[in-house]
């Protein structure tokens, strides 16, 4: 059963470019949707399991874009290397901010606020740091098709990279969920003191979750920069932070399938609204998106995960019959 659904998901992911008729613009949109979904899935580690409402996604995503872009532009370093370096850099920043925060017992609203502050601080630092970024967009050298440099004219290249990243992120996260680390993280979310008394090194596990998630968020940023062909400090985007956390919550905190499914659906709806309404009134699509989020959070505080579960239970049964 599990292998079938995995196979189905893989085929679906592989087929998407053909379903959108290999249209470059649509390919760009679906790649974006998968990139943001990847961040949501990775966020589960710190937010869904660890219970820390992290709003730093924009910081790590931006760091990925800037570091990968900087290496590609200034040193001609392959984007693949850039992804790894920027992931490591993001994990390093996560450690620098996470270690004192967790050690000093920052949590709940205060943790959320401090992580959001990080996004804006990094944005301004890179705005002022003109050797690396600065107020002007920096363009990555164009290549028609250079898989080694990780640069291509067609978006399908980035689509498959992103699809592979999403799939591996999902596998990593579901593996961690089933492991001792996942169990420990959930126990921290449920009750820190009780977890600690059972021998859980609360700080260490929170930090681990934060570092893995920030690494993946940075990789999405690097792919993004290479795909659009430039980087800029505005890629330290607080909107990504907020979007990530809300989608994960709407999908169901700590639910494995809910967040990615909900992200893909809602982000698609958002893009659809943007294409149809965005031209009429700028921002209207996000007003509707905002209303959808508020309504779901108000009326389904546990998110849509449980709903998806019950649908999933019904579906195979009707097929078998």
């Amino acid at each position: 059963m599990k292998t079938y659904s995995a196979l189905g998901a893989a085929i679906a992911l592989a087929a998407v470019p053909f379903l959108v008729g290999l249209n470059e613009y649509y390919l760009f949109l679906v790649t974006l949707i998968l990139l943001y979904t990847t961040i949501v899935v990775a966020w589960q580690l710190i937010g869904g399991y660890g219970g820390q409402l992290d709003l730093g996604a924009g910081a790590y995503h931006g760091l990925g874009a800037v570091v990968t872009g900087f290496l590609m532009v200034n040193y001609g370093v392959s984007g693949w290397v850039g992804l790894l370096v920027s992931g490591a850099a993001a994990a390093g920043v996560a450690f620098l901010i996470g270690y004192p925060s967790f050690r000093l017992g920052l949590k709940e609203v205060w943790y959320a606020l401090s992580s959001l502050a990080l996004v804006l601080i990094l944005q301004k630092i890179f705005l002022l740091w003109t050797d690396v970024a600065g107020p002007l967009e920096r363009y990555i050298p164009y290549a028609e098709f250079d898989p080694v440099f990780m640069r291509a004219g067609t978006k399908i290249f980035y689509y498959y990279i992103t699809a592979a990243l999403l799939a591996s992120t999902f596998l990593i996260v579901s593996r961690i969920r089933r492991s001792k680390t996942g169990l420990y993280l959930i126990s921290i979310r449920e009750n820190e003191e009780a977890a600690e008394m059972l021998g859980v090194d609360v700080r260490r596990y929170k930090l681990q979750a934060l570092m893995i998630y920030s690494f993946i968020a940075a990789v999405t940023g690097g792919i993004y920069a290479s795909m659009v062909g430039f980087y800029h400090p505005t890629l330290f985007d607080s909107w990504i932070s907020i979007q990530t956390a809300t989608l994960a919550i709407v999908g169901g905190l700590g639910h494995l399938l809910g967040p990615p499914i909900v992200s893909i659906i809602l982000l698609t709806v958002q893009e659809y609204l943007r294409i149809t309404l965005g031209a009429v009134i700028i921002g209207l699509h996000q007003v509707i998106f905002g209303i959808i989020l508020v309504v779901i959070i108000m009326f389904k505080p546990d998110g849509l995960g449980p709903l998806i579960d019950s649908l999933a239970r019904r579906f195979p049964a009707s097929v078998r019959r």
Binding site: I242, T246, G283, L284, Q286, V287, F289, G290, I291, L293, V294, I297, M298
Partner: peptide
């Protein structure tokens, strides 16, 4: 959610 709504 309210933040998202008002901002947009």
């Amino acid at each position: 959610g309210v933040l998202v709504l008002l901002r947009n």
